[in-house]
């Protein structure tokens, strides 16, 4: 804590677009009082200070290099609370799509002769490397959800993380179901919290917020098959944002009735 009692906060990023941090900056438009509640000591995208004394660390981005692990562990050692900020940190997002290819081939395809300049290993969420205390899902994050998480941390409460699917928020908005108008949607197995933003604007959910804790994968596949998707197209829906989770679930053989 600072002498004024405000917790010190730092922002970090790994493999990502840094758009979630931009959303944090954006959230100040409507929640300027955030700056009165916390002291930001490090936030490369927004300020020049490089304070190393912080209690809460928000980490955006996936871990994609062996060398990143050390930096992650250093942050973990300093921070009392580590928050995964956005899909890249939470699920490895689209970054994990490269895990479906041989990594040597991936490097050559993009960087040709200079491939060895660009170190990389299988993209993973930060929780695969360090312990994570809270998650703000989404690509990008929802700024209201970010504010709710900050408030919960300030109150010393467990930050809220919706454990129900997007369908709940979609129904409560009384949207026409995507499946009723010939579209496809991952809403039934995807973690809510986005206000069902994609279906609300006529696009099926892509699953950017990761799966609910106990998704009925088989039933979801049946529903997508019924809606006319091929096996390949169904797998594509599952892996688009959630390659890492799909592989992890497969490895665990996780299935719950």
């Amino acid at each position: 804590m600072t002498s004024n009692g405000k917790p010190k906060v730092a922002f970090f990023d790994f493999a990502c677009c840094e758009g979630c941090q931009l959303t944090v900056v954006d959230s100040l438009q409507t929640h300027l009082d955030l700056l009165e509640a916390v002291e930001i000591v490090q936030f490369r995208e927004a300020i020049s200070d490089r304070g190393e004394d912080y209690q809460i660390a928000f980490i955006e981005g996936s871990c994609t290099r062996q060398a990143d692990e050390e930096r992650l562990r250093k942050i973990r050692a300093q921070a009392s609370v580590v928050v995964a900020l956005g899909a890249c940190a939470h699920t490895a997002c689209v970054n994990a799509l490269k895990n479906l290819h041989p990594l040597e081939d991936v490097r050559r395809w993009v960087y040709g002769d200079q491939a060895e300049w660009y170190d990389t290993y299988e993209a993973r969420p930060i929780s695969a490397v360090i312990e994570v205390d809270a998650i703000i899902p989404g690509c990008p994050i929802d700024r209201e959800e970010f504010i709710r998480v900050v408030k919960a941390l300030l109150l010393g409460k467990k930050p809220p993380l919706p454990d129900y699917p997007v369908c709940v928020e979609c129904k409560l908005k009384e949207n026409v179901c995507m499946f009723h108008i010939g579209k496809f949607c991952m809403g039934p197995v995807t973690r809510a919290g986005c206000g069902a933003i994609c279906p609300t604007y006529g696009d099926g959910c892509e699953g950017c917020r990761g799966f609910i804790p106990a998704p009925n994968e088989n039933a979801m596949k049946d529903v997508l098959a019924d809606a006319g998707l091929t096996v390949e197209a169904i797998m594509a829906r599952f892996t688009m944002f959630n390659t890492y989770l799909v592989s992890a679930r497969k490895a665990d053989g996780e299935e719950r009735r």
Binding site: F14, A15, C17, G61, T64, R65, D68, C93, V94, N95, L97, K98, L100, H101, D105, V106, R107, W109, V110, Y111, Y118, T120, A123, C139, E206, E232, A233, A236, M240
Partner: peptide
């Protein structure tokens, strides 16, 4: 910056996904 390899991992994806992936 850690590279993300978009050019490589979009290979083999359904065409209708590409604008959704690359927009990330």
């Amino acid at each position: 910056e850690a590279p993300r390899f978009f050019e490589a991992f979009v290979r083999g994806r359904p065409y209708y996904e590409l604008s959704h992936i690359t927009s990330r």
